[in-house]
Simulated assay, not measured.
Amino acid sequence: MSQILVTGANGFVGRALCRALVDGGHAVTGLVRQAGGCPDGVHEWVSAGKDFEDVKTDWPRGLRPESVVHLAARVHVLNDDAVDPDAAFHATNVDGTLRIAEAALHNGVRRFVFVSSIKALAEGDLGRPLREDDLPAPQDAYGRSKYAAEQALLRFGEETGLDIVIVRPPLVYGPDVRANFLRLMDAVWKRMPLPLGSVRARRSLVYVDNLADALARCATDPRAARQCFHVADGDDPTVAGLARSLGRHLERPARLVPVPTSWLRLAGRLTHRLPQVERLVGSLQVDSGRIRSVLGWQPPYSTEDGLAATARWYRSTR
C-alpha cells in the first residue's frame, strides 16, 4: 500500500480522509499546524510556520510519500475581518500551497491532490450542472484564491512533471459540520420558522465520507493522473427538501414558510446580505460524471445515509 501525506489532517475533511486511508491499509502522515486531533493510526507532523513557510526545512527525515492530499487552507468565512481578504487568502491558499508542492517534489512525491472548491468555478450553475471545463468565474476572495492555486499548480506540474490532480467539492456535510449547514440544523432543531417553503433551487452536496472515499481514490488510482474532478453525492435536493429531510432525521419537522424568492432577494439587497440569500435561493448543481466514468467511482453512501449520520451526531451533542 501507499505512503500518503495529508495536510490539514485534523480538520473536518482531513479526519475522515485519514480514517479512510488507514482503513485501506495505507501509511498516513498528517501535516498539522497544532498538535492533536488526528485519527488513530496517523503519524502526526506539526509544522506551525505561517502559510507553510517552514515546510521544506521541517520536512521529517525519511518521509517519502508517493502522494500528498492538500486540504489545509484559509477557509471561506462569512464575516472576514482581514484588511485585504484577497491578499490574505492568496498568501495561504496560493503561496502556501506552492510551498508544499515544491517541498513534496523535492522529497520524491509523484502526485499532488489539491482539494479546491466549486467556488473556484462559480457561485451558481448555468441552468445545468457545472462541468469541469466550464469557464471559471469565481465571485469572492476565497473562490479567487482557489482558482489561482489551481492555475499555479498546473503550471508547476507542467514545469516539473509533478502529477497534479484537482478536486472541486460543493458544500460538504457530515458529523462535526460547521458554518451554514450547522446553522440550518440549529434552526430546524429550535423549530424556527424558515422562509424557504417556496425555494425550488437545487444544491449539490457531498457527504464527508463520500468525499474522503473519492480523495483516497484520487491519491492512489493511476487513472486519476492530471485530472480535474467534481465530486458530489449525485442526489441534489432543493433547499426546502434538504430542510425537510433534516427535520425528519432530527425528529423535529421543519417549519417552512412559503415566501417568494423575489421577496427574499429584495430583503437581501436591503440588508446588504444578497450573497448569503443567493446561497439559499440560487441553484448550484455540479456534474460529477467525470470521476464516475474515469475512475468508476460511486459514492458509498446516499444523501439520506449522510443526513441520517449527521443528524445522529447533532442529537448526541444536545
Rank of each mutant, 00 (worst) to 15 (best):
K50V: 15
A103R: 05
A101G: 08
D84Q: 04
Y314P: 11
F112M: 11
D23C: 11
F52A: 15
P260G: 07
R19K: 14
P253N: 13
R292K: 14
R273G: 11
D81Q: 09
P170R: 06
V206Q: 00
R191P: 01
V69I: 14
V77C: 05
A225P: 00
A311Y: 10
R244K: 15
S198F: 04
L274M: 05
R111F: 11
V281F: 05
N93K: 02
S293R: 15
F12R: 10
G143H: 11
Q3S: 15
V28A: 13
R128N: 11
N210H: 03
D81H: 08
K190L: 12
V113T: 10
K190E: 12
R244S: 14
V172F: 09
E132V: 14
P193C: 04
A87W: 00
H272F: 14
A201M: 00
A120R: 09
F52S: 12
L162P: 05
A216C: 06
R312Y: 07
A137C: 12
Q34A: 15
R244M: 15
P129W: 07
H90Y: 13
V231P: 02
T261Q: 08
T97H: 01
G36F: 13
A20C: 15
P260Y: 06
T220N: 01
V277W: 04
V231N: 01
T92Q: 09
P193K: 03
V13T: 14
T238E: 06
G197I: 07
V294I: 13
L264T: 07
V239H: 12
N93P: 01
R217A: 11
D140F: 11
L17S: 12
A148F: 03
E278V: 09
W263P: 01
F89D: 01
C228D: 01
V46D: 09
W59M: 03
Y142E: 12
F181Q: 05
R248W: 13
P85G: 03
A232E: 02
L184V: 08
V28D: 12
Q285L: 01
T220P: 00
V172E: 07
A309F: 12
T271I: 09
E66Q: 14
D134N: 13
W189T: 07
L264R: 07
T160F: 08
T7A: 06
E251M: 11
E123S: 15
G62T: 06
P129S: 10
A267N: 07
V42R: 05
C228G: 02
F156L: 13
H90Q: 03
A122Q: 08
H90A: 10
E278C: 10
L284P: 02
D95K: 09
S245I: 13
F156S: 09
V231W: 00
R252Q: 14
V113P: 13
L196K: 05
V199L: 06
R203A: 01
D233T: 03
H70D: 04
I118H: 02
G143V: 10
S262H: 06
P138C: 14
V239W: 09
V277M: 10
V208E: 06
G282W: 02
A87V: 04
R203C: 03
A91F: 02
A219F: 02
R248F: 14
L17Y: 12
L256Y: 02
L21E: 13
W263V: 15
V231S: 00
L184N: 07
A225S: 07
K146I: 07
